[in-house]
Simulated assay, not measured.
Amino acid sequence: MMLLRFSLFAVLSVGCSTAALAEDTSPFPAGENAALVKKTCTECHGASVVVSAQFDEKLARKQYKLFVGDPDSEEGQKVVKYLTTYLGPR
Results as ranks from 00 to 15, higher is better:
F55R: 00
A30M: 08
V14Y: 06
D56G: 11
T42F: 05
E32I: 02
A20T: 07
C44V: 12
T40K: 12
A60Q: 10
V51F: 03
S48Q: 11
T25L: 01
V14S: 02
G31K: 02
E43F: 09
T25M: 03
T18I: 11
V49R: 13
T18Y: 01
L21H: 10
A19V: 12
P27Y: 02
P29C: 05
S13Q: 03
G15D: 00
P27T: 04
S26L: 09
P29R: 05
A10P: 03
A53G: 05
V51G: 04
T42N: 13
K58Y: 01
L59K: 06
V11R: 00
N33E: 08
T25H: 08
A47F: 04
V37E: 12
T18S: 00
C41D: 13
F9G: 11
E43W: 09
S13W: 08
C41E: 15
V50R: 04
L12N: 05
C41T: 15
K58P: 00
V14P: 00
A34S: 09
T40H: 08
T42Q: 14
L21D: 08
G31L: 06
A60T: 03
V14M: 08
D56L: 06
T40Y: 05
L36H: 08
D56K: 06
G31M: 06
V37R: 05
V37A: 03
L36G: 04
C41M: 15
T18N: 00
L8C: 11
K39E: 14
H45V: 14
F9S: 13
V49K: 13
D56R: 05
A60G: 07
A10M: 10
V49H: 12
H45S: 10
A53F: 12
G46L: 14
S26M: 07
L21S: 10
D24S: 07
A10Q: 02
K39W: 04
L59R: 04
T42L: 05
